[in-house]
Design a protein around this nucleic acid. Sequence first.
DNA 1: TTGAAAGCGCTACCAA
DNA 2: TTGGTAGCGCTTTCAA
Lengths: 332, 332
Amino acid sequence: MAKKRTTLKELASILEVSISTISKALNDSHEISEPTKQRIVELAKMHNYRPNKTALGLKSGRTNTIAVIIPSVQNSFFARALYGIESVISKTNYSTIVCLTKESFDKEVDNVDMLCNGVVDGFIVAVCQETQNLGDFNHFKDAISDGKSIVMFDCVLNSVPCTKVITNDYTAISQATQKLIESDRKNIVLVSTIHNSNVGKQRTKGYQKAMKEAQLSDVVLESKPKTIESVLKEHVINNSVDAVIALDTDASFAAYKVAQELNKNIPNDIAVIGYVSERIAPYLAPGLTTINQHSFTMGKTAATLLLEQLEHKTNVDSTVVIDSTLSQRESS
Amino acid sequence: MAKKRTTLKELASILEVSISTISKALNDSHEISEPTKQRIVELAKMHNYRPNKTALGLKSGRTNTIAVIIPSVQNSFFARALYGIESVISKTNYSTIVCLTKESFDKEVDNVDMLCNGVVDGFIVAVCQETQNLGDFNHFKDAISDGKSIVMFDCVLNSVPCTKVITNDYTAISQATQKLIESDRKNIVLVSTIHNSNVGKQRTKGYQKAMKEAQLSDVVLESKPKTIESVLKEHVINNSVDAVIALDTDASFAAYKVAQELNKNIPNDIAVIGYVSERIAPYLAPGLTTINQHSFTMGKTAATLLLEQLEHKTNVDSTVVIDSTLSQRESS
DNA sequence: TTGAAAGCGCTACCAA
DNA sequence: TTGGTAGCGCTTTCAA
């Protein structure tokens, strides 16, 4: 198979003109006469000519491609953020490469290294957990010294000089907790399967701060997705609980399931606030009050900032905060 | 900023040897003496040299990059399929470009056209709905005649000669319906928000066939995601319904919500079978019996087949079927 | 064992 | 208005 793609050279030899004439004509240069231009454009169309992007890239030193490096796409936060990024990028003449790290440091390093070599102009990254724990950021620093622009979002590295888009996790959950307290909930339990991540830790601290301020004692239940439900159930059976704050999707679902199994009414017996995709939250019964991280907006913002830097070929060290907000529904 | 990436040329001028010597040394050619090799490799390491992929691509005519073109990543089916694809590709020296079409024909055409030009070696595509309706497949045919390999999955185009990975939608839902009938359900309603897609139509036909065979009359409720709940509720109030088959996530959630609001017990009053991510289904209360399309496996299969074709530089016209299976849970 | 030069597809400069 | 040529970074003959 493989009737290889038409090149300028071929067109040139067919019309018996020079390659540069072809190139100029196709780029609508004023140097070329109208009739010649027409002949060439027509022939190019006939042969379905389209310029080789790789060659363009080599020539210009830019590829008009950006890389999005995220841990996963099954996580609805990242899925929606990616959607936000795409919504911006697709309006430009840039393409997007998406790489999934699955929270592996090695994969993250591999991806960054590989794409640095003339494949992309810049990166949008949600730094993976393992990298944060390891504290090895050389792949990003190398990329920057190679002249790449980087925008980090959600999980960011403060010690890497680049643009960061984050949310106010700590404050948001702290306020949510306060709100529960104001509506007379006293026994508020925090449930989480993401206690190993920085994001999870931030959120837990925010909750604890609010509880402490109200002179209530905090209860933090942490477990793996598979077991979180039984851990919570156990706790609810043996203690009085009138509210649950769930830090992630698994924990949120677990709260609902436990409530149902123990015949507790949401929100009358137990109020629930959780982190679940805004697409799913309203479909739960009752609709789940969520802390909305505005993932779409975060993605959009990150993409916009990166494009800006790419235009000016700069890499600025700054931080933008997108506020999380409480999406009040029936569960609290 | 931008201390541009080190090139062979620079290394050559530092060591005052020729570019070709550097190139050969770095590629461990036997033509180069050990001592020279060592000096060069060492210097390269010092300067953090890594070859420019674009240049490699231009030279070799292959880019070791594949494109995954899917409608969305918020749909858990595609998210998981992508995960399956990545799991295969990331073990090779290929990279993945992900493009989201949002079901737009124009975006699909743009993506394919753009990536054909020396950016990727092959495509994994879930054809978007609009393209299926329009019936214009030239972008794929062009890509093939440009020598690209294509593997389609889920939504495929039979008239495009390429590898296809599909599931047995029709049979799977037909069997699920039969199973409901065997367990004495008579008033089985189908609910769908994807009636415009081929997949939706196939599933509906499978259901209708099973109903007809059992001499039961079929009821098909179709609506938009926002309104499907009220449509179903209305129907359940005015008719006797003892089972619901939901063709998509929105419809599945709607079924649960309606049951709860009308105080119907699942599965005693109403059995439910739906299409929902396997990650979420068990968390519903009660756990939802789903028709599992094995999205991960489909992705893995598609990727494996594409790699195979890329190795042999062929493009074969064949179809692989991955069977959907019933994941029995408590809702039916 | 090393180097010079051509060429991948393209653009852009300079000359004709 | 056209064409020749150099060069982007790399590999690969072929000569030295």
